[in-house]
Computed example of a mutant assay.
Amino acid sequence: MDFTNYQKQLFAQPEGEITVATTVRNFAGWFFDLLRNFVLVGGLKYFAVKSGSDVLFYLHEFALIVIFLYCLSYVDQWYVNLFGFMENRKLGYWLDIGFNGVVAIAIFLIIHRGASIIVAEISRAQC
């Protein structure tokens, strides 16, 4: 038995790209970074309420806006071309803009509400 070939094959990585594992790792890293940031914003709110500090309150509000904008930055990564089949391209374009605007506003409201709920629950849990 040739042990040098055995050692080389013992820890062989499969050829090709392992996209599923990379995607899962990237998502997990992003999610835990986001979760850590929510905990930080919730902690700021908790300390602002407990200490009555205006500086911590405004820092919490600013951090909440930043985390909200961060979440919202992922929304503009797509565009739904729902009315691309229409012969009147100008009308189809404006209908697409309207539809995407409504979807963006709905996502905006969901993210805003979700971020507020998460921060409130984290700050309340620290009591």
Rank of each mutant, 00 (worst) to 15 (best):
D54F: 04
R113K: 08
R89L: 08
A106Q: 07
H112W: 10
V49W: 03
I118G: 02
Q77G: 14
S73K: 08
E61I: 03
A63N: 03
D54W: 04
V39S: 07
I107E: 04
F85E: 06
N81Q: 10
L72N: 01
F47A: 09
G42K: 01
L56G: 03
F68H: 07
G114K: 09
L91Q: 13
F108Y: 03
I111H: 10
I122R: 04
N100K: 06
I122H: 05
Y46T: 11
G114V: 09
I117F: 04
G43R: 07
V66K: 10
F38H: 03
L59I: 05
L109K: 06
G101E: 10
V119R: 00
V119D: 03
I117E: 12
L109S: 08
A48C: 08
I65N: 04
H60L: 02
R113V: 10
V39Y: 05
L44H: 02
F108I: 02
I107S: 02
S73N: 12
C71Q: 07
A106Y: 02
L95S: 10
Y46S: 14
A63H: 01
V102L: 15
I118V: 14
Y70A: 07
Y70N: 04
A115E: 04
D76L: 03
V119Y: 01
V102F: 12
L64K: 04
N81W: 01
N37Y: 03
L69E: 11
A106V: 11
I105N: 05
V66W: 07
K50H: 09
V66E: 11
A115K: 01
L109A: 14
V49I: 13
F38I: 07
W78D: 14
I65W: 00
R89Q: 09
S51T: 15
F83W: 06
A104T: 06
C71P: 00
F108Q: 01
E87S: 10
R113A: 12
W94D: 13
L40W: 13
S51E: 13
R89Y: 04
R36S: 15
L72F: 05
W78T: 15
N81S: 11
F83R: 05
Y46W: 15
L109I: 09
G84S: 11
A63M: 04
A106M: 09
G98W: 11
I97L: 14
D96W: 08
N37D: 15
V66P: 00
F83V: 07
I65Y: 03
V75D: 06
N100D: 11
V39G: 00
I67W: 00
D96K: 09
L69Q: 13
E121L: 15
I110N: 05
I97Q: 14
N81K: 09
M86T: 03
D54P: 03
D54Q: 11
Y93T: 14
Q77K: 12
